[in-house]
Computed example of a mutant assay.
Amino acid sequence: MTASEQDRDILARTLWGEARGEGTAGQVAVAWTIRNRVFDGKEKSWWGEGYAGVCQKPYQFSCWNKTDPNYQFLNGVKQIQFRELAQCRIAADQVIDGKVVDPTDGATHYYATSIKPPAWSVKATQTLKLGGHVFFRDVP
């Protein structure tokens, strides 16, 4: 699958909304979680199609929820600082282009440690704890 410029932009904006405070390593881990959903091996994926489809599918990534304070930045109503978005774009491009390995070991889910662990995390396989996020695969 070839990623479009829209895919790259939406992934970078999602990284900004979900992991801008995590540094490159955390942004790469979140991007890999999204990539793992994009390439889940199913012909018609529940997650959505392509990076933009996965990122913007309702309720998958809270930063795209219209009630989230980040949403106005992601949809362009407010401007993201160039340097911040550029850093997220670098992480997005590295993951899309396969230039970095998956530090999450196949994770398709994560949650921020600032919230109560979701019910699904109890029966899932934790693969990584990095910064303010915990990553999982085999989520029931």
Rank of each mutant, 00 (worst) to 15 (best):
T104S: 03
M1Y: 08
V54H: 12
F61T: 03
I115R: 09
T24G: 09
L74G: 01
R35E: 12
V30L: 12
R89Y: 02
D102Y: 03
A12Q: 00
H133N: 12
T113G: 10
E18F: 02
W32S: 11
V28G: 02
W47L: 10
N70C: 13
S62N: 13
K78D: 10
R35L: 15
V100P: 03
T113P: 04
K66W: 11
Q81G: 10
Q56R: 13
V139S: 06
D97T: 03
I80G: 04
V38W: 11
H133D: 04
I80W: 05
D138L: 06
Q72W: 09
E22Q: 09
W46A: 13
K116Y: 11
D97F: 08
R20L: 14
Q94T: 05
R89I: 00
V95E: 07
Q6S: 14
C63F: 06
Y59E: 15
G23E: 00
T2S: 13
T24D: 11
K116Q: 12
A52K: 00
L85F: 03
I115Y: 15
W47V: 12
V28T: 01
S4Q: 06
V139Q: 07
T14W: 01
A29S: 04
F135N: 06
T125Q: 13
K99Y: 12
K123R: 14
N70K: 10
A107K: 01
D138Q: 10
L128N: 04
A52N: 05
V28Q: 00
S62W: 14
K44C: 12
V28N: 00
Y110A: 02
G23A: 00
D102M: 07
V54A: 10
G106E: 06
A31H: 06
I90K: 07
P118I: 12
F82V: 14
K129V: 15
Q87V: 02
R13K: 14
R35W: 15
F73D: 02
K78I: 08
G26M: 05
A31P: 04
G98H: 04
E43K: 12
W32R: 08
I10H: 05
W120A: 00
T125E: 15
A52W: 02
V139I: 07
P69G: 05
D68A: 02
G50I: 01
A25P: 03
G41S: 04
V77H: 07
D9T: 05
Y111E: 10
A3C: 03
L85H: 01
E49F: 13
K42G: 09
N70V: 09
I90T: 10
T113N: 10
S114Q: 08
F82S: 14
Y110C: 07
H133W: 07
F82Y: 15
Q126D: 08
A119L: 15
A31Y: 07
C88K: 02
L130Q: 10
T24E: 15
